[in-house]
């Protein structure tokens, strides 16, 4: 993911708001709308030639463009990838002008626009779950998705890809559960490509944690910009090392987990959310 869009606004000829959608809570919504109306007046006075321009305001970047009577505004974080957002805004303009501009002019309801905007604005975050066989990667995946656990262990073949049912930070989280059997290890480097977060799952035994150091090295070589977190799973077993000890051995931030215990779900989602935000913060610094 190279950006998180915080809000999408479309204003009409009289600078009236004809569509708005916020993906992040804003405490200053009224003043933001007033600002956008003023911005629309300003945009109409300058020659944009169909280009998408942007300006920095506080920690945000406001992207805007004018097409016929309509002003399109995206609000994103300053650290986000401008080129991608400009591409997205251009995509939205094409779709809007084709299907919705006549409706907006005729003051008709803009049915389906919400989904079109979501399609453009909601992004994908790839979270790869990596670990050796039998440590509980698929169980972790089920936990994250809030699913009941299968009674019979069915080893993953290659990779199993599932979405998190809820959006996190205006992004769809795509979970890549990589098969842990050694024959599939040849796929790991390719499968973690472009992951923003890599979760290394261990069963918290000393032997497995020591082996898992290799995985940390692999991740740092293949996806150096990814946030890496360790999971000390099976903390309910007597042989389990503490999460602190596992973290020391792996040299990555590590969290405890009992993947068969549903109460860990929200905590784990928060850990991933934090990693996504930290990843974005790293880009700013």
């Amino acid at each position: 993911m190279k950006f998180v869009i915080r809000g999408v606004y479309i204003l009409g000829q009289q600078s009236e708001m004809i569509f708005s959608k916020e993906y992040a809570k804003s405490e200053h919504k009224d003043s933001l709308i007033e600002f956008l109306v003023n911005l629309t007046q300003f945009i109409k006075a300058v020659e944009l030639d169909g280009n998408v321009e942007s300006m920095g305001v506080s920690s945000w970047r406001i992207f805007y463009s004018l097409e016929d009577a309509f002003t399109f505004v995206f609000i994103a974080d300053k650290a986000d990838d401008s080129a991608q957002i400009k591409g997205k805004i251009s995509d939205l303009i094409v779709k809007f002008m084709k299907d919705y501009a006549p409706l907006a002019i005729a003051n008709q309801p803009l049915e389906g626009l919400d989904a079109i905007v979501d399609e453009v604005a909601v992004t994908l975050v790839k979270v790869a779950i990596l670990g050796f066989a039998g440590v509980g990667k698929t169980t972790t995946l089920h936990l994250l998705r809030g699913e009941t656990l299968p009674l019979v262990h069915d080893p993953t073949i290659g990779v199993s890809i599932k979405k998190l049912p809820t959006e996190v930070e205006n992004a769809n989280i795509v979970l890549w559960d990589l098969a842990g059997q050694s024959r599939f290890s040849i796929l790991w480097a390719k499968m973690i490509a472009n992951a923003q977060v890599v979760v290394i799952v261990t069963d918290s035994t000393l032997e497995n944690v020591l082996r898992s150091k290799k995985l940390v090295t692999l991740v740092s070589e293949e996806v150096p910009n990814a946030r890496v977190i360790g999971i000390a799973n099976k903390q309910d077993l007597p042989t389990a090392l503490t999460p602190e000890r596992v973290g020391q051995i792996l040299s990555i931030p590590t969290y405890e987990l009992v993947a068969i215990d549903i109460s860990y779900r929200e905590r784990l989602i928060q850990i991933i959310r934090k990693s996504i935000l930290e990843g974005k913060a790293d880009k700013v610094t």
């Binding site: 073949i157 290659g158 990779v159 599939f184 040849i186 796929l187 390719k190």
Partner: peptide, 11 residues
């Protein structure tokens, strides 16, 4: 599973 196996066979 079938797609995984097809890909794996080549890799």
């Amino acid at each position: 599973k079938a797609l995984n196996l097809v890909y794996y066979e080549h890799e």
